[in-house]
Design a protein around this nucleic acid. Sequence first.
DNA 1: AATGGTCTTGTAATCGTTTACGATTTTGTT
DNA 2: AACAAAATCGTAAACGATTACAAGACCATT
Lengths: 341, 341
Amino acid sequence: MSTIKEVAELAGVSVATASRVLSGYPYISAATRQRVLDAVKQLDYQPDQVARSLRRRRANLIGLVVSTIENVFFTEVAHAVEQAARPLGYNLIVCNTDEDPQNEAAYLSILDRQLVAGVILAPAPGDARHLERFIGEKLPIVLINRRLNHLPFPSITCDDETAAFACVSYLAAEGKQRIAAIKGLPGVSTTEERLAGYRRALQAAGLPCQADLEVEGRANLEGGYRAAYALMQRQDRPDALFVFNNVMMQGVVIALQDLGISWPESVDVAGFGAFAAARLYRPPLTVVAQPAHEMGRRALAMLLSCVEGKTAGDAEAVVLPNRIITREEWQHSVRCGSGAI
Amino acid sequence: MSTIKEVAELAGVSVATASRVLSGYPYISAATRQRVLDAVKQLDYQPDQVARSLRRRRANLIGLVVSTIENVFFTEVAHAVEQAARPLGYNLIVCNTDEDPQNEAAYLSILDRQLVAGVILAPAPGDARHLERFIGEKLPIVLINRRLNHLPFPSITCDDETAAFACVSYLAAEGKQRIAAIKGLPGVSTTEERLAGYRRALQAAGLPCQADLEVEGRANLEGGYRAAYALMQRQDRPDALFVFNNVMMQGVVIALQDLGISWPESVDVAGFGAFAAARLYRPPLTVVAQPAHEMGRRALAMLLSCVEGKTAGDAEAVVLPNRIITREEWQHSVRCGSGAI
DNA sequence: AATGGTCTTGTAATCGTTTACGATTTTGTT
DNA sequence: AACAAAATCGTAAACGATTACAAGACCATT
């Protein structure tokens, strides 16, 4: 691994001049520039990113802090961010908080010290005070998927209220009367919005909001499984389930399969789900598929505009529409055969 | 963000002494040590990792280069590596090559320049010559999931030959006669081993190996879908499918659902699959679940022993057993209810 | 006292890069 | 020809940490 000093020696110039050629400084004679570039090629020189970071006080790294790395939604976000970042010369550090604000605080301070250019953050629930020190600071943060109510970070989210309204309205239009909600983690904006959409849809359909039909599931496979299992064992069991989260959705479906309960007749299910997994549900279910790739791309673009200081820092909040695939649309795609994938 | 210089000034010592206190150098008087530690606490000093990396020529970073970030197998590996690395003070950079050796070469050289302590690599298929320059070099590399035949890197893989043999033997024991193979990417060790196990099982069962029953699927959902769809449209269609990859497995199941073909009667399916998704298949299927978490942990341990120079570099190749869950075991777990998750 | 060893601490070089500052040369204008 | 402005390039100081080397203090042994 050769250094800029060797390049400078080979080209017969000072390291300063060599550095200037590489960084596109204009006042360099054509002959000098050529000699430096030749030396670079001959030595296969590539700048040391660590030394550059030390001097510039900034690295070509983007941090992506997710709350659950095994959730396919965040994997898709990571993929999208990485694909968009690579051609721009940025690399990605993915960190996983497991929904724990303490891990989140630790990771952010590590990333800050590691001098990443910026962070895309899916915040953990609960106490977010540790984020206050980053407001308006040199480390830009863009929130993804979840918003934080009182902290003015830019954010990319989805219109989950509308999507939840549409899902629950679909269930109501099917004649379902007792539509239960299997809620996500309390204390995060997505859960609150989905809950608001659920309640608004019930009201619009003239159905009562019943507290006993709202249950909280831990946002993992087992949480969805247990919540659905318990709900369906009740005497006065619901005739529809609205599920807040793609991982829980799988658990719910497995629970119904285990219980031998068929849908949509005995009970219908709708909710947030991962597109690929939703293809497996038979009969199909109405699901909300979040535009993970687009969210990732938009978050990166927003972050880089902060990094390059183009924005006035007015904490833009972008809200994207969700994609809703109803059972009927799934069935149509099945009829079309292999083109559906 | 305070520096060691400020700590030294506040404590009334030189930066060298302050640094020595922090790095556990023994010959420091108790009084001096205490003053430095007090200053550290008072200023909330945390060392600058970039400067430390520059000087030490090594960072507290591990690179994980995966071939498909959206494959849940690699997500689980990433989770395991990260969980194991965090308490040891290492962080993880995840990069995604999309099965392209050129991307792989680019990322490795970036990581090398970024001064990661080591890399865990799931190599892309095809030309691996760009890896030769890392053999025995200062950047340790541990392979995961796939081996490279002629390059002596340490590796963590699974006994896929045995697992494939077991799966196909299961299908044969059910009386299936025309067992097709939906193969993975050519040119990777996993595909070759799974193919060898498939063929050995056919021979052991007294069945012929037929070239027209071995088809190649691109290792994604659509690849599995198309391969199964095409196979099942043949006049002389197979009565069983052995699938090489968890993502293709989902595509296969979706294709059978779309075609209205029931299993295990009309056709039975077995193969490599993700544990969580496999819970959704009804009726259940016999699947091989790779021990992704253990593989990640072992790979990290192996990598760190290289980093810390404890191993003589004799390129250990660890082969772990796979976990095979037969249809009967799934059905038993269903009978046990919610305990199954 | 003189010698030698062990503690304790500071000075300064170093990692590879960027960049402020200044010196020198070239070009343009009157 | 004189002068200003622009172009070109080198010197050296950063960035924040680690560490080789050396020097002084302290102690024990002769």
